[in-house]
């Protein structure tokens, strides 16, 4: 039953694939950004999962505790979250500009408008 013990990794893979699928299959630009976000979030969980040490506490020095979780991936992922927020913000800003320029956020309609020129 090893695979059950690795459930957090299964969650990561499920979220990753779900997000990826949304990015590929949706033609609505906002939904694509949502999918992209989901995709990135799954990686955050991957990092956080790997930092867990069994029986470890939060990495704060205190008497009576000898085993700590690894804090480095937490810090790394804080950086990655910031990057993710910046990407989402920029993506949505672009969608707003696209909406202003084309009057729609549907990929196929945008494509048609460019073709008809």
């Amino acid at each position: 039953m090893q695979w059950l013990g690795l459930y957090n990794y299964w969650i990561v893979i499920f979220l990753m694939m779900a997000g990826f699928y949304v990015v590929i299959s949706r033609s609505n630009l906002v939904k694509k950004i949502v999918g992209l976000n989901l995709f990135q979030t799954s990686v955050f969980i991957l990092y956080i999962s790997m930092s867990k040490v069994q029986g470890g506490t939060a990495p704060i020095l205190k008497e009576g505790f000898a085993v700590y979780s690894n804090p480095l991936p937490h810090v790394l992922i804080l950086t990655a979250i910031v990057v993710g927020v910046a990407t989402t913000a920029l993506g949505l800003a672009l969608v707003v500009r696209i909406k202003e320029a084309y009057g729609t956020v549907e990929e196929d309609e945008i494509h048609n408008k460019d073709e008809s020129l």
Binding site: F20, V23, L36, T87, G91, L94, I98, A101, D114
Partner: peptide, 14 residues
């Protein structure tokens, strides 16, 4: 340019 940038953003982020 906007759609090109958006497309690059999606691919680049992946």
């Amino acid at each position: 340019a906007l759609t090109a940038s958006y497309q690059y953003l999606i691919m680049g982020t992946i």
